[in-house]
Design a protein around this nucleic acid. Structure first.
Lengths: 153, 153
DNA sequence: TATTGTTATACTCTATAACTATA
DNA sequence: TATAGTTATAGAGTATAACAATA
């Protein structure tokens, strides 16, 4: 049984970086608006949770606060998000997505979905179900929000 | 049915970056020898295929030749691989892993497996099977070797 | 001419350390 | 004193463009 865990871990370590590279290339290709993966993830997170603080972004993405600060710099510079001092606690910062940010995010989402979906066309319904199940169970395990060990350095 | 493809693509786009970030953090943590993910992948590839050329590495990792060249610089600098002019075609370069490289690779593999496997402990046998199936079917789809579209820029 | 690789240049991602401002 | 964020600094990943050497 321990065998199975190890096999799974090996498979994950082999395959996830390949898929990630695919996503990265798709995101930077001419087919899709130019966003890096961290920029895309940040934009999507702020879109889902308007008004989040920088710390929350850092935790969600799984990076340090200084890294998140720089990441936000870039998005603010491109006018995809806004950054304001928070009312209640002036140490904090409040992030919001701009209309341009929303538009770009949606275009990037569509491009990335399309790129990924093309590859899936040949798969059986069972294969697709396995993928969905795998993603569903893996998600909480390796997310910093639900598993703090996921960001222990 | 198109629905299913789209759902799958969405799930992949949401979950794969999380797992990747987990792997990245694990690889740079004190628990594991300090290797970046691309360095790790390159080392593993050269270990599996001694004597590969730089172009083959670039294709496998999914990066350009200049990027691969720089990546190799770092590994040569740390004496984890050697780089030699090829006999048959002197334009090419022949990459080999060193004993230190092998040792570090094995330690990194162990560390990363252990880190990943911990999270899997709570899963059922069916969940693990779904993960394995998902990884098996996704692998060729998003690998540059088997799907050249995976590196189209 | 085409292929293999390197060098130059430029950006982004990421970290740690040091700092400021607020609580 | 503790928390939220920024700035400074540094190294790695990545790309495109220009180049050299070999086939």
């Amino acid at each position: 049984m321990q065998e199975l865990f190890d096999e799974c871990a090996r498979d994950i370590l082999d395959v996830i970086p390949r898929i990630m590279q695919f996503i990265r290339v798709e995101m930077r290709s001419k087919r899709t608006p130019d966003l890096t993966v961290p920029q895309f993830r940040t934009l999507a997170f702020i879109n889902r949770r308007p008004g989040v603080s920088l710390s929350e972004v850092a935790e969600h993405i799984g990076i340090t606060l200084p890294s998140a600060s720089k990441l936000a710099d870039g998005l603010v510079g491109r006018a995809l998000i806004t950054r304001q001092e928070a009312f209640i606690d002036r140490r904090k910062v409040t992030l919001e997505i701009t209309p341009q940010g929303k538009a770009l995010l949606n275009a990037a989402l569509q491009g990335a979905h399309a790129g990924l979906a093309i590859g899936l066309q040949g798969l059986s319904q069972e294969d697709l179900a396995a993928i969905q199940r795998a993603m569903r169970v893996l998600r909480p395990i390796y997310s910093p929000e639900t598993n703090p060990i996921a960001t222990e350095r």
